[in-house]
């Protein structure tokens, strides 16, 4: 039996020190909705659990230069209640809201969803489409990174030893911008995404798309930034032809697997469908 201990630091510095002292045998507990399952199933056997929910900067939402800074351990339910985020980044909010049940929403966090590094994580494609940044704290201080750089493989991240994600930053948006996230699951709730698609875009006054980002989840070992999909949209009014190109680009980017949750064929096809549908919603939101 391993001797597990529990710590609940009050600051990021303290948490980083604990991480370093445990020398790789510590796990961060944010929402715990993945961690406790992994503990129960014996997938991990840490010697220390560091609860990061009592660190005030990690559970706050702040407006900053017209953008939003969101603590990495804020629950999905709390984020969903934030009117400013709902207005500015509805796609991100809806993606986070799709993580698990109401009960899971009471606990699950964006930080956990990202750092658990599942290819199927719902929040991540939306955050990547939004080109969100994150603050990372470690023994050598703090640095900033793009969310799209974090996940490197299933369960693998680019975080260095004893580093942790503190918060996310969603920058101010130009006028006529919109985002959306859709996922496909067999049921209506309670499943892991079989495919996820996040789109963020900006239109000019004529309704022509001037900027776009598109990311897919659950169709490869990591979330995919689909640049050809963005290209398909930029310069178009998201007409039928552009949507067809988007659909093809999304499908072409997929490198999925057959597993208990979906097939290669189904995932690929649905990736194109969701890309189109998410783009249409994002457009509608951009048009206000």
């Amino acid at each position: 039996m391993n001797a597990l201990t529990y710590a609940s630091p009050g600051s990021v510095d303290e948490a980083v020190k604990l991480l370093a002292a445990a020398d790789g045998n510590a796990r961060l507990l944010a929402g715990g909705t993945d961690l406790l399952v992994q503990l129960r199933l014996g997938m991990i056997e840490p010697s220390l659990i560091i609860d990061v929910k009592n660190i005030s900067e990690m559970t706050a939402i702040k407006e900053e230069n017209g953008g939003f800074r969101i603590g990495a351990s804020i629950s999905g339910a709390a984020l969903g209640e934030h009117a400013g985020m709902q207005r500015a980044w509805p796609g991100v909010v809806e993606a986070v809201a799709l993580i698990g049940s109401t009960q899971i929403q009471g606990r699950a966090t964006m930080g956990g969803n990202l750092c658990n590094a599942s290819p199927a994580a719902d929040a991540v494609p939306a955050m990547i489409a939004a080109d969100a940044l994150c603050t990372i704290a470690g023994p050598d201080g703090r640095r900033e990174a793009r969310v799209e750089e974090i996940v490197t493989g299933p369960g693998e991240t680019s975080l260095e030893a004893f580093e942790m994600v503190v918060d996310f930053f969603f920058p101010a948006r130009p006028a006529r911008s919109g985002d959306a996230y859709l996922r496909f699951i067999p049921r209506t709730e309670m499943d892991i995404a079989v495919v996820g698609a996040g789109v963020s875009l900006t239109l000019d006054e004529a309704g022509v798309c001037t900027a776009a980002r598109m990311a897919l989840g659950a169709v490869a070992a990591t979330q995919l930034v689909v640049e050809d999909a963005a290209k398909a949209l930029i310069g178009s009014t998201l007409d039928g032809a552009a949507m067809e190109k988007l659909d093809s680009a999304a499908r072409a980017a997929c490198r999925p697997i057959d597993d208990k949750r979906g097939t290669i064929e189904h995932r690929t096809k649905v990736a194109g469908v969701l890309a189109r549908r998410a783009a249409a919603i994002a457009k509608q939101r951009a048009e206000g």
Partner: peptide
């Protein structure tokens, strides 16, 4: 907040 008590540690109740 509604949660699953199987996904919280007892220690967190402090």
């Amino acid at each position: 907040r509604l949660i699953c008590s199987c996904l919280a540690l007892g220690a967190e109740a402090e």
